[in-house]
Nucleic acid binder design. Sequence first.
DNA 1: GTCTATAAACGGATAGAC
DNA 2: GTCTATCCGTTTATAGAC
Lengths: 210, 210
Amino acid sequence: MNQVATTTAERILDAAEHLFAENGIGNTSLRQITAAASVNLAAIHYHFRSKDGLIEALLLRRLAEANRVRLEQLDAAESAAHPPALEKVMHAFVGPVVDLGKSPRGTHFARMMARVHTEREGLMVEILQRHFPEMVRRFKQAFRRAAPGLPPEEILWRIHFSVGLLMWSLQSSRHLEAFSDGRVRQSNPAALTRRLVSFLSAGFRAPLES
Amino acid sequence: MNQVATTTAERILDAAEHLFAENGIGNTSLRQITAAASVNLAAIHYHFRSKDGLIEALLLRRLAEANRVRLEQLDAAESAAHPPALEKVMHAFVGPVVDLGKSPRGTHFARMMARVHTEREGLMVEILQRHFPEMVRRFKQAFRRAAPGLPPEEILWRIHFSVGLLMWSLQSSRHLEAFSDGRVRQSNPAALTRRLVSFLSAGFRAPLES
DNA sequence: GTCTATAAACGGATAGAC
DNA sequence: GTCTATCCGTTTATAGAC
């Protein structure tokens, strides 16, 4: 359990995670990263081949574990009731990702992932399809069962909305602060998960528009 | 009614709108813009002073009108019922922005605006506060009245969620397509507005989490 | 594995002629 | 208003010594 990263590769990953989260992907240069990590510029290319390779390594480093927890909680939801409760499925979907924010580094990761989702849409889709098709498949199925009566296309729209709101809420704290004149701040992960599950489950159950 | 932009400034704005929407702000250079617009590089600085100045001009060009329609529809909702119906307020909030997508150029604008929201958070907040404080104030008040019983802080959270989902749905068509194996595509503006109003209104009415 | 040095291109911005 | 030419810093990436 290292508090301080030891290897060069890890120092690069930590620095990149932080800077990507803070300033976005496109606005962060490899030089900024190597400076923050106190390593040589060439080390990034040696260890990760390219900037995209670095992004992929960052995603795999923590998303694999978060997705494992997601599926574990989904298993529990599906064992508890048939069909599984929508709130439980939604909680399994958003909770483990929001919970990354319990550790400072996890916060950086979550915000970085949201950046990749919006700034590098194509790359994100590619990585999900390559490394986590099982997670995608299982949740599609679970949402379909938990919200019977909705046409398949509608289910996909609402999952799409749920992913989007999750990413937005991970990334954009400044909007809420500015919008509330500084009165409302990013709350803790548990509170955010509750808000998201409540809002999204209700949205998922919305009547079909006439 | 010009189909082809005549002035240099307009050609720059059109080209920038398209490229920013397609590739993001950070990944689009001024040189790409001037090449697409067939104008000289220096023209951007002459007409708009800087890249940020160009972004601001782009936002003002179409958002002023969209916000005027928003407030018009909000007026109608507030005249029709006291308190105004939540669905009507939500429709006034998202509809005019989604409707921009009825014209090809408006589609580019909407996607570009979403890019600014996520890539240049600070700039977007600043522009909203400087140019459209009335719109922000009026909708905060309207949502508060349309959703009585919710604590003020909760209202702000749910408006924040609504803005986020609106931006996500304007920007990320590729996620939905990939997620549905190409079966579901971006539908027309009217259908998207209906989906958003339905989903967001239901989320807004969600019970307070225990 | 890590370093220096450098390639080769690109970024925003500006001066000054026309 | 529009152009050329250019400043000057930054970018990703690589070659090659250690």
